[in-house]
Design a protein around this nucleic acid. Sequence first.
DNA 1: TAGAAACCTGTCACTACCGACAGTTTTGCC
DNA 2: GGCAAAACTGTCGGTAGTGACAGGTTTCTA
Lengths: 245, 245
Amino acid sequence: MTDQQAFFDLLDIMENEKLVEAKRFFALMRSTFSIANLLYADVDILTSGFVIHRLHHTFNVSAVRTYIDEGFLQIDPVLRLIIGGVRPVDWATARKLHPESEPLFSALTRLEAGTDGVTLPLATPTRRLAFLAIHADVPPEEWPAYRRCHLRDFQLLANLFHASLLENDDRIHLSEHGDKTLTHRETEVLGWAAAGKSYWEIGTILGISERTVRFFMTNARRKLNVVSNTQAVAQAVRRDLIPTF
Amino acid sequence: MTDQQAFFDLLDIMENEKLVEAKRFFALMRSTFSIANLLYADVDILTSGFVIHRLHHTFNVSAVRTYIDEGFLQIDPVLRLIIGGVRPVDWATARKLHPESEPLFSALTRLEAGTDGVTLPLATPTRRLAFLAIHADVPPEEWPAYRRCHLRDFQLLANLFHASLLENDDRIHLSEHGDKTLTHRETEVLGWAAAGKSYWEIGTILGISERTVRFFMTNARRKLNVVSNTQAVAQAVRRDLIPTF
DNA sequence: TAGAAACCTGTCACTACCGACAGTTTTGCC
DNA sequence: GGCAAAACTGTCGGTAGTGACAGGTTTCTA
């Protein structure tokens, strides 16, 4: 079993350092645990496909390319379990549950990308999907016991790494709407519109005239580059611009 | 330090049993760790307020009532950090960061609800907010070390408990919209409205009359129990009922 | 084959929204 | 004090959304 002290050293780094680069985190993980490869992804899942926000991994580049080109993204049973679930998914379990995904696993074997591992779903404040896939570097017969022993370590460290990346994501968040940041009142008015209030009602609630509500809403529409309040609210909800309190 | 074996016994239960009731989980946690109280919540945060999906706790009922009645929900710095973050939040850290929340902490002391603890954000497939608050039952001076040692256990077990509840939530999920599932056309029309299209435009896009678009939209509003298209779209986006463009 | 559910359409009266006109007042910062 | 940004207000005319009236057609399943 892995040295306990090494875990706690890593925990201290993850808890106290402001930003832990993916490469460094991966290196630390590999030196602490018996891990062959790691893959971290933070994506938006749309009907039209995926939008990748962040992707870091230690796999062979051509292996990942093959994975995507062959369309394994669509049939990967691990991903399917991660979407709509929050439980760590053991690859072997997913393989058993979805026999139709055998082509994927035989390809993984062929690519030497391994078939023993676990993928951890990660919380996102917005509606994205994030996970850390951990590819084991222990003999297959030892993997279940190793996983049982270190799943808690993986889960906590994965969360902290994920948190570190999210917290250092401000620039992206800002550049997303440029200098078109919504003012407090604009945000407030949007929030009430999302709650089904009319201009007149919002004005009464905020103690301002109906006209002023329209003014803020017009500004918000212009900043969000949309044509209707409905579209504005849709955008605001999607981008998490609407206050929750 | 707590017995390692006890953790692994609990881990086996959480990993293998289909449904672990909150009361049982709380009892197991308290017998395994030095925990005074636990609180698990799964809520939707809307502008109009909270919608609580699940709330389980071991605190004194009157203490929780006081917490809510006094409006601490609004100023709780722990909650503020949990929303928009994914990192475990130590109560003492939150207290230091937000000095204006002292009334809350002095009230907690008064209510004997404790000020040492940690709150773990939990992943949700939809865009809800879920967390497990753990109130320590160790002397204040020992808490930091105890927390450091067992945070990984807490994080993993919390995730598994959360997963167990979510997985057994299908019937609730169905009854939530009841027979109010949106039809294909209703969803489609909502999607175009969210994209800023007018009734006339949507009708043209879908090859149906403007009146029919209104019909679908009216049905959608009724099913979602909202009063405007704007509110309907806000709800639909929040509940992931319509695809993102 | 009956019934339910989804899909589809028309008209009327009313209210809400939206863009464009043209401002004033307050707040915060250099 | 000067300047910019935010907050705030009024009016007009056109378009869009909303509820209530009252239907018909298609598709699927018991």
